[in-house]
Amino acid sequence: MNRIAACFERLKEQGRQALIPYITAGDPAPGATVPTMHAMVEAGADIIELGIPFSDPMADGPTIQLACERSLKHGTRLLDVLDMVKTFREKDQETPVVLMGYLNPVEVLGYGAFAEQAAAAGVDGALIVDLPPEEAEGEFDQAMKANGLDIIYLLAPTTEESRIEQVCKAGSGYLYYVSVKGVTGSASLDVQAVADKLDVVRKYTNLPVGVGFGIKDAESAKAVSEVAEGVIVGSVLVNKIASLVQQQDEIPAQVSAIVAELRTAMDA
């Protein structure tokens, strides 16, 4: 069993939900990332989504766009992101790491090379925001499978039922439900609407579902944890990082303090 499946299995036995924080790799500088990953795990993170910085993050709001810009100022490349995961794995062989980003940096490396090197670095799966199952079919899909990597797909409020079935079939590891129509960091979510949609999703899959976009605080994290197997938070953490650009030593402690707060609320 791979790390992602094992993680959800263990949580299920414990009757708990996965807390899945997102940070952009190399934000605000390359040295900040691995210590922050470890600190988040200590504070109760179950899976880490690590963003691959991209110059044109079309599906993200200003928070993550600025994070990409801070990271790219240091020239963070996809290969550097893989190195960060490798370093993280020196101390943590258990916590799943999912890369999240846009296709072009992956395309430049080549799908086969990406999947091989990601697996070798200790990555468990990837969520490529602008790569829907239709376009992943074939080369990307095969490369990921051949290397034992999960492909995490998005579902959205606009995804129709016939398509939900198709996406559920294509995905593995878990599914990422985008709770609001909008970009990351936008409006807050309607938990009832999420619950209704997830009822439909569950008709087609036994995969765990993580819900992201619009989770801002302990209260919304708790509410989502009551309807989904995973709670994904990004912009609140990235905003915290942005506020600490001048005090980078503080980043692991202060970011993980938010993670701990969400964890406490979810487990209460």
């Binding site: 602008d130 239709e134 376009e135 998005l154 959205a156 409020p157 606009t158 985008v178």
Partner: peptide, 20 residues
């Protein structure tokens, strides 16, 4: 029918826009 011109074109967008 999938919007491909040989290897080019296609529909590389996030899920929210697929239905539209």
């Amino acid at each position: 029918e999938r919007g491909h011109f040989g290897p080019y074109g296609g529909r590389f967008v996030s899920e929210t826009l697929m239905a539209a």
